[in-house]
């Protein structure tokens, strides 16, 4: 179902946790709220779930205004950060709980619990207690419990935080497939930008209780609306320069031919857009620099380079067995980038 959040303000004493948040989710959409801890994303989720009452603003589910509706009547499925499974109930009893609260007949409960557990491939463990399960299994029980009653909206509060990397990647895709199959409108919360890029239809980047930008992952990554977004999402070189009409002068690189209103300007250059040595030849903007550090990452290498007469930048070069090894520390390299790979970060 559609979710519409309008002008949500939430204060705790003197601090403003949410400073007027507007957000719309289309039916079946998977939207991620990405932000550092303390940015207010969990507070927003609690307002949507009904655990916190906003000081101003409305929350709508479909056509219904649910701002004043208690959590138990919102029909919203939620997976908590620590799963909040009921430790004294078995897996099946945990999943049956929301159906029992809705006074469904016993045979129907049994049938739907079986279906939900099959959906997360935990049918064989229905008699176990949560503490007898691994972290990943507990996470899937929490998911089954959140979707078994056919909620209008699914909320996920950093559900993969406690899991190791490999398991997390598997579960991310699994959750995404499940969400698509059930067509559930989903609000997902994370501070992990990679997770946000992998899973989302759209990403909303949150900072200090406000949404800096809402957009598709590729768009937010390529054209961040604020300096914060540029810095938070992915690795970035933020080049400070002076704009004069049709070009921005960046120390070390010279004029970069991009349109930008006159005055001080910030350019975003992703590390993978920076080319080295032979590949830098013929590009719009070139410089020379000295390698400060080379980090081997498997598929690629990351180099920190001090640009002559300019800032320190980060470059990421792909590694193939056939390519020569990247320049080592202390080596002097030529570096350059194409003007179309640069994004002017709006000032605000």
């Amino acid at each position: 179902m559609r979710l519409s959040v309008q002008g949500i303000v939430k204060r705790f004493g003197a601090t403003t946790a949410l400073g007027g948040v507007d957000l719309d989710l289309a039916e079946g959409e998977f939207l991620t709220i990405l932000g550092p801890s303390g940015s207010g994303k969990t507070t927003l989720l609690k307002v949507v779930a009904g655990f916190e009452a906003p000081d101003a603003g409305r929350v709508r589910l479909g056509e219904e205004d649910v701002t004043e509706v208690s959590p138990r009547q919102r029909d919203v499925g939620m997976v908590f950060q620590n799963y909040a499974l009921f430790p004294h109930l078995t897996v099946a009893q945990n999943v049956a709980f929301p159906l029992e609260m809705r006074r469904r007949p016993k045979p129907e409960i049994a049938k739907r619990v079986t279906e939900a557990l099959a959906l997360v491939e935990l049918g064989a463990l229905s008699g176990r207690l949560p503490r007898q399960l691994s972290g990943g299994q507990q996470q899937r029980v929490a998911l089954a419990r959140a979707v078994v009653f056919g909620p209008r909206l699914l909320l996920l509060d950093e559900p993969f935080g406690a899991l190791d990397r490999k398991l997390r990647e598997g579960l991310q895709l699994e959750v995404r497939r499940l969400q698509r199959r059930l067509g559930l409108t989903t609000l997902f919360i994370t501070h992990d930008q990679e997770e946000a890029l992998v899973m989302s239809d759209r990403i909303a980047v949150m900072n200090h209780g406000r949404l800096d930008q809402v957009g598709a992952p590729a768009e937010v990554y390529a054209r961040p609306a604020t300096r914060f977004v540029a810095d938070f999402l992915g690795e970035s070189n933020l080049l400070e320069g002076e704009a004069r009409g049709d070009a921005v002068a960046v120390p070390g690189f010279g004029p970069v031919p991009v349109a930008c209103p006159p005055g001080p300007a910030t350019l975003l250059l992703r590390p993978e857009a920076l080319r080295l040595d032979a590949k830098a030849a013929g590009l719009d903007c070139r410089a020379t620099g000295r390698v400060v550090e080379t980090i081997f990452l498997g598929l690629s290498a990351k180099l920190r380079i001090r640009v002559e007469g300019g800032p320190e930048v980060l470059a990421r070069v792909p590694l193939r067995p056939s390519t020569p090894p990247p320049a080592g520390e202390g080596a002097t390299v030529a570096l350059g980038f194409a003007a179309e790979d640069v994004h002017v970060v709006p000032r605000g």
């Binding site: 655990f51 959590p71 138990r72 009547q73 499925g77 009921f86 709980f97 419990r145």
Partner: peptide, 17 residues
């Protein structure tokens, strides 16, 4: 862990239940 009572409320339980 009070989150469990919240979870129960979110799943449709009254506070008393």
């Amino acid at each position: 862990d009070e989150a469990q009572e919240q979870a129960a409320a979110g799943l449709g339980a009254s506070w008393f239940i």
